[in-house]
């Protein structure tokens, strides 16, 4: 649990180093090929690029602590504000999709394990494997093609935030959420099934049966809670991973989320924004897993939160 702090420190160093490794001088790039050397030098000094690398790092970290993540080179917007507002858009899609997927997929996985090798099990596992093999960006396109173009139920382009108009916002969110939901269903069903199978082999399950409990009680009261621990950790990892991997979905549905922001910034060499995105996602990932770990003892009292 205490690993979270050093991890975030190393993450910060890594992000900083990564950006310095990018070839080319951002000041020269920003000013274009007609710029005078003096102009470039002036911009370098405003951006702090003329300092030594360790100095730049210290200044950067100092600013981070003051909530100053710099300004976008392209638009001049404060990075923290920009990144956080985009993060909110991505996060609502990811959290909603994973939440719905978990509610359906976890019980489905448990049932598949309980009926191991039955037709139900084969159908569930088969479906899950197919679902998880479909790339989200392709699935998104297919859904868009069908529901957007064929049926005309949802708009094909554009985006409205739920905060401005919640009805319209929900409609715009429907397809991206559905895409992620379908994909993650596959992942979670398989995980829940595997961890339930592990538990069902154990002695206390046989003992619960030997006590005279019904199969339902054995499954939900004894097996489920113990099997949920590993699945819970997995859901945490999925959440974190999706935050980073959502760029493709956002591209398909033209949503101005964090992923799209990162990709655009890479194209535009907007260093401060790239840094901000990477840092925010990594920190979010660490925090999500921290919360997951802290809640883990609820499912398994053997693991004591330190």
């Amino acid at each position: 649990m205490l690993m979270a702090v050093p991890t975030i420190v190393i993450v910060a160093v890594a992000v900083f180093t990564l950006i310095r490794l990018i070839p080319g001088d951002p000041a020269a790039l920003m000013l274009g090929d007609l710029a005078e050397p003096q102009q470039i030098a002036a911009l370098r000094s405003t951006l702090g690029l003329d300092q030594s690398i360790p100095m730049q790092f210290m200044i950067w970290v100092g600013h981070l602590f003051n909530g100053d993540f710099g300004k976008s080179i392209v638009t001049g917007e404060p990075v923290l504000h920009l990144v956080l507002s985009r993060f909110f858009i991505s996060a609502q899609i990811v959290v909603l999709a994973v939440f719905i997927a978990s509610i359906i997929a976890v019980p489905a996985g448990v049932i598949a394990a309980w009926k191991q090798n039955s037709l139900t099990d084969l159908a569930l596992v088969g479906t899950a494997t197919v679902l998880l093999s479909i790339p989200t960006f392709w699935l998104g396109l297919l859904l868009l093609l069908f529901f957007g173009l064929k049926l005309g139920w949802v708009p094909v382009l554009g985006y409205v935030s739920v905060t401005t108009d919640w009805k319209a916002g929900l409609i715009y969110m429907a397809l991206p959420v559905a895409t992620l939901f379908i994909h993650e269903m596959g992942v979670i069903i398989r995980m829940a099934r595997a961890s339930t199978l592990e538990v069902l082999r154990l002695d206390y399950i046989t003992h619960a049966r030997a006590k005279g409990l019904s199969e339902q009680a054995v499954l939900w009261r004894h097996a489920f809670k113990n099997a949920f621990g590993p699945t819970w950790t997995m859901i945490g990892l999925i959440l974190g991973n999706l935050l980073g991997g959502i760029a493709v979905i956002e591209t398909v549905f033209s949503i101005p989320g964090l992923g799209r922001l990162l990709v655009d910034s890479i194209f535009q060499r907007d260093y401060p924004v790239i840094q901000g995105c990477l840092l925010l996602v990594a920190v979010a990932y660490v925090l999500v897993n921290l919360v997951v770990d802290l809640l883990y003892p609820l499912f398994d009292p053997r693991v004591v939160a330190e």
């Binding site: 991890t7 070839p23 935050l243 890479i266």
Partner: peptide, 17 residues
Amino acid sequence: ALLAFPGILLALGLLAV
């Protein structure tokens, strides 16, 4: 620390390099 970056995100950052 490296694992704290979702794989594709780290790849995106590295691709910039």
